[in-house]
């Protein structure tokens, strides 16, 4: 087993870096995209609320594999239009396409998490904000958002791990993440142990993330 890792250690490490960076960037970008969507889901009953619900239903309703294919091969069909508006450099690159699809996908899940935590903020907090004469924006930015974030942290941590697993699908659109490297090394060696080595990598990554999350959660626990 170890020989199979050592012989291809350069590829394994590259894959590890690609997987980790894709997951990390997607979760952060996804969070910022999810914020307005989650707030609209929680607060708006008008058009905004409907649009937010539509977004969530579309991106949670489709398998990620289909979303990846749609972004990569589907939008690739419109390459001349994308060239014309100067966006082809994003869609030309499989890594960017993967990041985009993962971000759009995780944003839908994170939006629901944010909605949930906003809805569980007790009425007393709102009353205090009113009593302190905070403007709606200040109240949102300085009080509600931090509390919502602290409340959402465990669920977002969970989503982080689900997203890490989901990243493995970018291998299907030619990105050499951990799974992509595993598939390549498997095609070279036809040795099933390759997939077990990949499994060990994912186990270690998840354990590392869980350990980090526990530390972060403890810091924010007083707020939630």
């Amino acid at each position: 087993m170890l020989d199979l890792w050592l012989n291809y250690r350069g590829l394994w490490l590259e894959g590890l870096v690609t997987t980790a960076s894709l997951t990390g960037l997607a979760i952060v970008f996804g969070f910022f995209l999810a914020l307005p969507i989650g707030v609209l889901r929680a607060k708006s009953t008008g058009l905004g609320g409907w649009l937010a619900l539509g977004y969530v239903n579309v991106f949670r309703g489709m398998p990620l594999l289909v979303q990846l294919f749609l972004v990569y091969y589907g939008l690739g069909q419109f390459n001349s239009e994308l060239r014309a508006i100067g966006l082809w450099w994003i869609f030309r690159d499989a890594w960017y396409c993967g990041l985009l699809a993962l971000t759009l996908n995780t944003a839908a899940y994170q939006a629901e998490i944010i909605r949930g935590s906003l809805q569980t903020i007790p009425a007393s907090v709102y009353e205090t904000n009113a009593a302190l004469n905070l403007t709606r924006w200040t109240a949102f930015r300085r009080v509600l958002l931090p509390i919502a974030f602290a409340k959402a942290l465990p669920a977002i941590g969970n989503e982080f791990i689900l997203l890490l697993k989901a990243t493995s699908l970018v291998a299907i659109i030619t990105v050499f993440d951990l799974m992509g490297q595993a598939r390549y090394i498997f095609s070279e060696t036809l040795d099933l142990r390759v997939y077990y080595i990949a499994a060990v990598h994912y186990l270690l990554l998840v354990l590392a993330i869980e350990w980090a999350l526990r530390r972060i959660e403890r810091r924010f626990a007083w707020m939630a």
Binding site: G61, M62, F69, L70, G74, G76
Partner: peptide
């Protein structure tokens, strides 16, 4: 026609 077919099956899953 990747766009057509992936969009279509995406819609089926959503449904």
């Amino acid at each position: 026609e990747p766009f057509l077919f992936y969009l279509l099956i995406g819609a089926i899953y959503i449904l």
